[in-house]
């Protein structure tokens, strides 16, 4: 049977952006994109693509569709999942998607997943590095009425089921769920593969499909934020740098450990 895998991916500001280039507009309560630093696909979303590719390799016959919602897609960036090996991409691009909160994002994505037809497995990055809320995957699973298996470190496909080892702070738990289901992943699922030149050239022949909210029978009011952002600011940094110098590397390490213990950090 051919498997339909959906990967939800998000374009985010590069988390490696230097602090000096990071700015917020406090009045507008929004982050100002850093000049000259292109956005990236959220790291855990790349892990989600990697997980989907591994499932496809194991299943033999599968189609991977990447879905994203936003209003300022940079195609050099967003085509990366296709270059890694995903089969197709749907971008939901709409001015109303500019300021979606987690509820709105989950609403749009779940509608889009429904519109694609029968999804067997939906894979999401556990959270996005811009706001780190980790709300959207849970919202999608709730709206679609499917099981959510979080923080997968391994995914094994069975006959109409999936078995997932979920990372926990003291080890891992193993769950089985029927398809369809939603799985969230982080870096523990494995390093995302590098796009190869052949992959990029194949992706160059694929054009992402573009939908609007209208195509999903959604209006702006359907996705208006349920949360109100009251305040957004960069906290004042009172960091100070202290150089620990010892007689040699071992002594420096010992003194550092003592200092950390003194400060009750360890």
């Amino acid at each position: 049977m051919s498997l339909n895998i959906i990967v939800c991916a998000k374009q985010v500001m590069d988390p490696e952006t230097p602090l000096s280039a990071f700015n917020v507009d406090e009045a507008a309560k929004r982050v100002v994109p850093a000049q000259g630093i292109p956005p990236v696909v959220n790291g855990f979303c790349e892990n989600a693509v990697e997980a989907a590719l591994k499932i496809k390799e194991a299943a033999g016959d599968a189609t991977i569709t990447v879905i994203s919602v936003g209003n300022d897609f940079v195609m050099d960036v967003m085509k990366k999942p296709l270059s890694m090996g995903a089969d197709q991409m749907i971008l939901i691009q709409d001015p109303a998607a500019e300021n979606l909160d987690a509820l709105g994002t989950a609403t749009v994505l779940s509608k889009a997943i429904e519109k694609t037809g029968e999804a067997d497995i939906i894979i999401c990055g556990q959270q996005a590095s811009d706001w780190d809320n980790a709300h959207v995957p849970l919202g999608i699973s709730e709206m679609l009425g499917v099981a959510c298996l979080s923080e997968a470190r391994s995914i094994d496909l069975g006959d109409g089921t999936v078995t997932v080892a979920s990372s926990r702070s003291d080890g891992y738990e193993v769950f089985e769920a029927p398809l369809p289901c939603l799985i969230t992943v982080n870096n523990e699922i494995g390093q995302p593969r590098y796009p190869t030149l052949r992959g990029i050239m194949q992706a160059s022949r694929k054009t992402p499909e573009t939908w609007t909210l209208n195509d999903l029978d959604l209006s702006e009011s359907d996705v208006s934020p349920a949360l109100t952002l009251s305040e957004l600011f960069v906290p004042a940094s009172d960091r100070e740098c202290q150089i620990i110098e010892g007689e040699d590397e071992a002594d420096s390490g010992r003194l550092l450990a003592l200092k950390l213990r003194e400060e009750k950090i360890i």
């Binding site: 050099d76 796009p195 190869t196 030149l197 050239m201 160059s204």
Partner: peptide, 15 residues
Amino acid sequence: STEDRQIQNAARDYL
């Protein structure tokens, strides 16, 4: 082109 930039970025990331 988009592909040129993607190829360069991919090469740089890997290397």
